[in-house]
């Protein structure tokens, strides 16, 4: 199975936990006319990691790196969920049954459906299991 078309490039940015850091990241992306499609912040003591799906990941990586940010690409997948009670359960159960661990996840509720962004330990396995279970994965082209 060609799993590649479902692998989405997330950019992850190391950020000190102090006022203005998110603003400078967002400002830099805005300047480059880069649109943020999905986004989350994870925080720990003193620092955080900003994770985002953007329409031009390479351009975003380059811009933020030149500004001195620590940036990395991470492979994630995006699953379409039913925007109804139990929607998340359906997806989480598929992965749980297959012993695939979710490292972290964030979601957004779009026009047509809700979307769950997943960072899992076994990306290819996760894609296969989700597809064979009949759930819908968004292709990379939806984002960039």
């Amino acid at each position: 199975m060609d799993t590649k078309k479902f692998v989405i490039k997330q950019i992850s940015i190391f950020s000190e936990n102090r006022p203005g850091r998110l603003a400078s990241i967002a400002h830099a992306l805005g300047e480059e006319k880069i649109n943020i499609l999905a986004f989350s912040i994870a925080e720990a003591s003193g620092f955080g990691v900003v994770r985002a799906l953007v329409d031009h990941p390479d351009k975003a990586y380059k811009k933020l790196s030149t500004l001195g940010f620590n940036v990395a690409f991470t492979d994630v997948i995006a699953v379409q969920m039913k925007d109804i009670p139990g929607g998340l359960y359906e997806i989480a159960k598929i992965l749980g049954d297959a012993q695939i661990n979710i490292e972290y996840s964030y979601a957004y509720s779009g026009k047509d459906a809700a979307v769950l962004i997943l960072r899992v330990d076994l990306v290819d396995d996760a894609i296969e299991k989700i597809l064979t279970s009949g759930a819908t994965l968004l292709e990379r082209t939806v984002f960039h």
């Binding site: 992850s12 990691v49 960072r119």
Partner: peptide, 9 residues
């Protein structure tokens, strides 16, 4: 740098 908080911790 890793996107995972646990790695950085």
């Amino acid at each position: 740098f890793s996107d995972k908080i646990t790695d950085i911790m």
